[in-house]
Amino acid sequence: MEEVMKSSVAELEQSQTQLAPEQNGGKKKRSKLKAMTWFDYVNYTFLLICVLFMLYPFYFVLIGSFSEGQDYMGGGVWLLPRIWTVANYQVIVSDNLLWVAYKNTTIRTLVGSTLSLSFTSIVAYAMSRRELKFRGVFQILNLITMFFGGGLIPYFAMINLLGLYDSFLVYIIPAMYSVYNMIVISGGFGSISEELHDSAVIDGAGEIRIWWQIYLPLSKAVHATVLLWLAVGNWNAYYSTMIYTQGGDHVITLQYYLMNVINKAAYSPEVGGEILEQVTPRTVSYAAIVVAILPILFVYPFLSRYFVKGVFVGALKG
């Protein structure tokens, strides 16, 4: 634990110093710029091909979703739709359940991620303090759960015992705390200068106030990163709906809905027959997929700079 914490702290510090002076990286790169060799051409091309391979699947589904259903099923739609239509979207958007699932997933993502971040952060604050009594014991108790667990059935029994089965709270409460995120956040706290804490103590601030007014604002990057993980995890979660609920309207999530659309063509559109004639379950499921990734696509450009700059360094260490 000590070692893990130490290394993550050290690397977070590194990554933060890296983050601040942008020019530093730029300078290094400028001095490296030399004539392109054959290796560079091969490398540039190879990486471009890799990226194309990674993104083409999404493009493939996108063009499928704009294709006329019957025509699409004939095959051969690889680059552009042969017959363009928005009927698939009209069909999927008219299914009320999609919006119910969307709403549930949005609430889950917003509420669940925020609560989990706050709770984990305040515990992480306590765990990052060297003067915490029995700190070693706390660390060990936390760490054990990362490597050993009771397994599916006892956990399921616990969920039942708490009355969380088939309740919306099953998405929120069991996800309130994560040891892994705690270690990441307390690594971030650990890199904050101890003098700040001392002066706040002299000014008479309580520990919770120090956390809220000094430590939290000073480790925004780490918190943003963890919040992002939590949000993406919540948005993409399928397992919890399948196992801990019966998939009713009050608990249905987007991924669960999507799974049913993809595998069982389970959607009930409220559109006229002439629109339904233009679609097949397959192309409708493509439209559903696109609708489900749209929010991620929308926020991605704003968030991607976080990963690229390497805030994750210390974070990814376990």
Partner: peptide, 25 residues
């Protein structure tokens, strides 16, 4: 000390319910 200890205990309380008791299971 008491504040910090309580905060750390909150984490352990969570783990007790969602990890340790299931472990006993």
């Amino acid at each position: 000390d008491i504040t910090l200890f309580t905060l750390a205990c909150m984490g352990i309380a969570f783990l007790l319910v969602f990890s340790y008791i299931p472990m006993a299971g």
